[in-house]
Each structure stands twice: as structure tokens, then as C-alpha cells.
Nucleic acid binder design. Structure first.
Lengths: 214, 214
DNA sequence: CGGCGCCTACCCACTACTGGGTAGGCGGTT
DNA sequence: AACCGCCTACCCAGTAGTGGGTAGGCGCCG
């Protein structure tokens, strides 16, 4: 059905390796055309505005701009463009958040390339695509449950926490009382349903907080 | 110089995406021949024994077998095979550890594909290759400094710690006293020069401990 | 056999984090 | 104006982790 006009795709990932690899693989399929790639969400947006792709594949774990924020930008500038999130891990909160913000698909990076092609075809046809592990997460969660990502301040605290700082150091960095940092931390834990510090840090790293190189 | 006989390469990575992508990219170079790929270190070893490649590219962040352990296995079975480590982050201790265990190269995944080709050519020619960020790390460190990776037990403890477990839970998992787990944790911190739990977890995740999907 | 490294385990005082509150100020919405 | 969400900040009792020891048992190597 899509043999006549190829599906235009833009790829965004901060790993050139993944980018070039994905492009090389996708270009072996005649019905898919990679019209642009980018290493940052913002440059990706520029590329997409110029090329008007049907589908954008974007890594959720990006340095400057979180995946969720990126979805909003893309949806605002290119409302007809379908967005597929790529993620290394199945960070539960962000799957639902992605969907709520308008992503049409969510696939884990440990998926086969065939499945990525299927995902592109499916969302280009106007439907949604979620890789196996992902749909489980979505089913677990009632739609009225807000899946509220964190507030700005909570985001700040979590980022510093993930970079290996103690409450006291975070308080100093943000010019806050230590007590306030603890309040934020408590709220984050409550929101995410995570009880240990270790779990918080895993969550932060998996979700693309934390520059990952301190 | 290598145009006549292509360099035989085996790729090992637990992300099919990276694997297929890397293969697709490398196959556009006539002097490089990908003779096999694998998603696990052990299956990779089997493939390598059958195909006798000149170079093995292996992800340091593998579920079952850590990158370092994998190097030892490969060196034991295939002493002439040159090994290049692929890593997502520049985990300082493990760069040196890789080199000490016999890796011929260490490249970060956020490197261009051209640089990967250069790395393959260089190690196949009998030299070593380290991507830019990596060589800095090596220079920082005196060769007599042991770069001692952790003991088996410390490795176990750190892995569980990174998966979000408390000392008590780790003690239960490993059938140890809580006090012993704390001793191990103290020793790990001393060895790595990391004081916070958060820092430990970052280290663990960056270094390819932690199954990354609990 | 003596030494060394590792694993195990405990003591102690101290500090940090936890999880439960409450609460004032601020800005935006109804 | 009343409400709500967010940011700020504190109280408290309890638990967990820190950092400094010591120490016995075990296996390996010279």
C-alpha cells in the first residue's frame, strides 16, 4: 500500500552510531525514505520543518531537551507529523507521559529492526504502535491516572540527586534549605512510587535526566 | 593496504538496533567484512571461534557477562583476535581495566561511524585505538596505579545496589549479614573514591553493571 | 609455614535519610 | 475572592547509612 510514495522519516538520536545505523537499515526498505537526521531535538525540529516528514523517530534520552518536552514542540510546529519514541529502557512513567503528550508510538531500543519498520508503517497509516513490553505498562495504568511528570523544581532536585549529590549539596546548589530539598524528594518518591534513593537514580538515568557525564 | 583481504569483524551488542545498524554501515566499506554478530558475549565467543575474526567489537554494557570478563574469555580462546570495547559512557575505571585485560581499543558510542572504521583499521594493523575522551582518562592515570576493579563479591553487592536495593535487601539476596554488605559497600567506596550512594549507582550503571531492566 | 587478599561479621558514634505531619506565600484560574 | 498547585520550610520520631575500627576463617603463593 505504501510502495508508490515512500514514507518520509526523520531520525533524532544523540548517538551517531544509532543514527547512521538506523538510516542504513531503513534505506534498504524502498517504501521508507530517511529525509533527515539530527543529534539534538532542536536541530531535529528544524530538519523536520524543512522536510515535512510523515514520521519522526526520536530518542527519549536526549541531553538538552527531554523527550517529553520535544514531543510538545513537534506537535506544536508539525501537528500532522506522527512521533515515535525510542527508549533504551522501559521507564514506566514516561511511556504514559509520551502517549498523553501525543506520541503515536513507543519502542524499546532492544527491539529488532524489523519491528522498527513495522512501527513506522503502522503510525504512518494513522494507527499507534507500542513494542511488547510497552503495552503491558500502558494496560497497568488507568487513563484517568494523571501520570504527572515532575514539576520544574522536582526535576532539578532529581537531576542533581542522580548526579551523585546528597540532600545537603543539592540544597547548596539550588540555594534552598535542606528541608525543602527533602520535601521535594519526598514528593518525587510519592509521585513515582519509588521508595529507595537507588531507585530514584535509576529512574532519573533511564528517563534522560542527568547529563550522564558529570 | 587492506584492500586485498577484507578485515574480518565480529560484532557483539545486546541491542539489535545497534547491531544491525553497525553491520549495515560497516558493510558499505569493501575492506571490512562482518562475519558474524551476537547479542550475548558467550554466543559472540562461539561465533568468533567459528569465524576467526581479526577484530571483535564488543559492548561493555552486557547483561550476563561484564565486558571485562568477556575480554578475558576472548583472549583465552582467541589470543590473536584484537578486541575493541564499545561503551555508552566514559566510565573511568573500566577504560583502564579494559586495557589492562588486553583490549586493543576503546571507543565511546557517541562517536561517528567513520571513527569506528578507523578504530577497526588501526587495531587490525596491530596498533591501539582510543577515542578522544578515552585517551584523556588514560593519561590521567599512572600505569603503576592498579586500577583495581572490584572483587566478585563487591561486584555482586554493587549490582544489587544499583538495581535499587537497600543494604538489608542485598543481605537477604546474597544470604549475608547486613554488616557484611556494609563492609563491602565501604570497601567499594574506598576503592572507587566515591562517597555517596548516588555516585555508586551512577558508576554501576555507567560501567555496565546492573541488568538495566529489573 | 607465613603472608596476603578476600569474605565474613561485628562494635561504636555519628550523620543522613524517611515518612508522617503542618504551613505560609505566590501566581494563575474560576 | 476562593481555590489550587507549586515552592518554600520546618517538626518529629524512627530507620538506614557512614566511617572508623577489629577479627576469624579460607585459599593461594612463595
Amino acid at each position: 500500500m505504501n510502495e508508490v510514495k515512500p514514507i518520509k522519516v526523520v531520525l533524532i538520536d544523540n548517538h551517531p552510531l544509532v543514527l547512521d545505523g538506523l538510516r542504513a537499515v531503513l534505506e534498504t526498505f524502498p517504501h521508507i525514505e530517511v529525509v533527515g537526521t539530527a543529534g539534538l531535538a532542536l536541530t531535529g525540529l528544524e530538519v523536520a520543518i524543512k522536510t515535512n516528514p510523515a514520521v519522526v523517530l526520536i530518542d527519549i534520552n536526549m541531553p538538552k531537551l527531554s523527550g517529553i518536552e520535544a514531543i510538545e514542540l513537534f506537535k506544536a510546529k508539525l501537528p500532522d507529523c506522527r512521533i515515535v519514541m525510542l527508549s533504551m529502557h522501559d521507564s514506566r512513567e514516561y511511556i504514559s507521559a509520551s502517549v498523553l503528550h501525543g506520541a503515536s508510538g513507543y519502542i524499546l531500543k532492544d527491539v529488532s529492526t524489523d519491528e522498527i519498520v513495522t512501527a513506522i508503517e503502522t503510525v504512518a497509516a494513522g494507527r499507534t504502535y507500542f513494542s511488547s513490553g510497552v503495552s503491558d505498562v500502558l494496560l497497568e495504568r488507568r487513563p484517568n491516572e494523571p501520570a504527572n511528570p515532575l514539576t520544574t523544581r522536582e526535576h532539578d532536585v532529581l537531576t542533581l540527586l542522580a548526579s551523585g549529590k546528597s540532600n545537603r549539596e543539592i540544597a547548596q546548589s539550588l540555594s534552598l534549605s535542606e528541608a525543602t530539598v527533602e520535601t521535594h524528594r519526598k514528593n518525587i518518591k510519592k509521585k513515582l512510587g519509588i521508595s529507595t534513593t537507588a531507585g530514584l537514580i535509576r529512574y532519573a538515568i533511564d528517563s534522560g535526566f542527568s547529563a550522564a557525564d558529570n
